[in-house]
Amino acid sequence: MQTRLHINGDDHQLDADARTTLLDALRNHLGLTGSKKGCDHGQCGACTVLVNGRRINSCLTLACMHDGDEIVTIEGLGAPGRLSALQQAFVHHDGFQCGYCTPGQICSATAMLEEIEAGWPSHVTSDVSGKAELTVDEISERMSGNLCRCSAYPNIVDAIMEVGKGRRG
């Protein structure tokens, strides 16, 4: 199957079996190994990437379904010397131990802050028709699709809180 993917600003032409997931395309065909394979069943969030600006589990979607889509992986968010605000905050707050879940956490948090800004409610928002506040409970609920087996959660939340607050001014 021929598939055109725009990844981190570059055009890629993928020639792969239809069974290839977006995650396997990124890691095994295109050499972008920042996105991680944890459970491979949408349960852990280590494979989270942004597709057309939205966070998804790249393990539970086929690469061929994304012909023409705009994809951003952890490599596209920043690099040593030009870290994104969230990448910087994860370093500052020590938001990881082994680091395996970190690319997924950061991609997920990047889109999650946009979702709050767009006014999306969550399971813990007291009034679903109102506006959500940036609280520890909101961040924890909205990040529940990203597991961290080292349990660095308090520091992950601190890092996200710092960037979220900065954005809200």
Partner: peptide, 27 residues
């Protein structure tokens, strides 16, 4: 996240938000 659903059918918004994760609900 739809305004009509949140205002007039809040149980539907709540049920959706109680399911899966942010990433999965996007798909």
């Amino acid at each position: 996240a739809d305004a009509i659903v949140r205002k007039h059918y809040p149980m539907l918004a709540k049920a959706l938000l109680a399911g899966a994760s942010g990433q999965l609900r996007n798909k």
